[in-house]
Design a protein around this nucleic acid. Structure first.
Lengths: 245, 245
DNA sequence: CGAGGTCTTGAAGACGATCAACAAACGTGG
DNA sequence: CCACGTTTGTTGATCGTCTTCAAGACCTCG
């Protein structure tokens, strides 16, 4: 199925950065991939506590990992873009320990856990790559933790923009210095652990410093070295591995 | 080697909670385990950017995952206790993206990456368990992120104590309501992203509320329900799976 | 055109940081 | 065993960042 092959292209591109898949591995994934499904913005892609039987891959759109606290607030702990696995963790862990929600309209495909099980039995190299993929998530979480404790709101926000920009660029989703990032300030606040009001003011400061422009759904990095400096950004933790910039 | 078997006991106990290892899997790990090594408190167990050839398991003691920021501060993003893998991520990822330092005197054993590679080729069930283990880390990171954004200093600190208490208990390292936690207030501050002064005051508040006692290197939970409530603690994310309390 | 969501601005107040100093605990060598 | 320096813990005062509350502007979509 060439249509499925093209659907999985963002995922393959992700692997190609680090360690390309063999044809047999690609074919195996393609053979076990469902038809494309469309998910409307704001709807859930995964539920905390749920035990999925399939693993989803985000083909197009933006999604967020969320954690709901007892007092009713929900915190965004990570963003997903094209080529990211949505709930691959739930394959080894059996249970999803956080929620995932679509930020924009999304397209996904699914791979049954039975196929992943088979992969671990017969495709050790692929298994190691899947494993690796889930670990990059953890690395990003650590970086967020570090940023939150060590920097002020401007630094944290700049850091997030740096991360999203580099990630978008790595999968070919950036146009020059711009990338698609259709989130609201409320969502940005939830990701940074700040109030909406303060996000708004911090945003204005970054704009005023000439670091970024943000109109509609496009973020333009107008001063990349400046933004990286403000964020103290070192992309090593993303494990993109062709050390660019 | 029965001595090595007993060294790996904390690790096996960790697996037993979720999905026990077969005898063959245990034997394989035992056969590929190095002699015990002792590491002095405050010395490094792993360096950011390093490419390890072996993976270490913490047998005894407390260690911390650290990230060094440009401005010279180091942030603690996680704690390790007996039975935790120190740098298993670096096997699939090839590179360690953060530092690890011994908090107390530690004992470790090492497993060469070559053995892990062989495990992925011939022990798929073991591989899935190793994978699973690395994912619990990510889950804890997410919870820390959520806690940092959503709660004040008291809540965050209570959350950390809850987590450490449950984890210590799960590997039999707790005595009643007490557990060994030989860290300084500076290290606690670095883990919570707070100043030392504020950690000190927050600690006094928790003590004053009768939630914990902390003398020397022992933390005693004097009011477990109260501590959990203050922390809004739900242990599901630890994936310990015998839902206790 | 109205309604709801999003963005923006102002003012007051809380939480935590920083600075500074001192007390207590610890380990080491004399 | 005591004297000493170093690390850790404790307290007070001041300041800044960020939160909260409140209200108005803008925008999009029915």
């Amino acid at each position: 199925m060439d249509s499925k092959r093209s659907l999985l292209e963002p995922l393959f591109a992700r692997f190609d950065i680090r360690d390309p898949l063999s044809e047999a591995e690609r074919d195996f994934l393609i053979a076990n991939t469902s038809e494309e499904r469309r998910i409307a913005a704001r709807s859930p892609l995964g539920h905390e506590g749920h035990r999925p039987t399939h693993c989803a891959v985000l083909i197009d759109g933006i999604a967020a990992r969320t954690i709901h606290t007892v007092n009713g607030t929900r915190r965004i702990v990570g963003f997903l873009i094209a080529g990211d696995f949505i709930d691959l963790q739930a394959f080894p862990l059996q249970r999803l320990d956080h929620g995932v929600e679509a930020i924009s309209d999304c397209r996904i495909v699914q791979i049954p856990h039975s196929a992943l099980l088979q992969a671990t039995e017969t495709f050790p190299h692929l298994t190691r790559l899947l494993w690796q993929t889930t670990l990059v998530e953890g690395s990003m979480h650590r970086q967020w933790l570090s940023a939150m404790g060590a920097m002020d709101a401007g630094g944290q926000m700049a850091h997030l923009f740096c991360e999203q920009f580099m990630r978008a660029r790595s999968v070919g989703m950036a146009q020059g210095n711009s990338f698609h990032f259709p989130i609201t300030q409320e969502q940005l606040a939830s990701a940074l652990g700040l109030s909406i009001v303060h996000v708004n003011r911090t945003l204005q400061r970054l704009r005023g410093m000439g670091l970024i422009r943000w109109q509609g759904q496009e973020v333009e990095v107008t001063n990349w070295p400046g933004l990286k400096h403000e964020a103290q950004f070192d992309p090593a933790y993303l494990h993109l591995d062709r050390a660019e910039d």
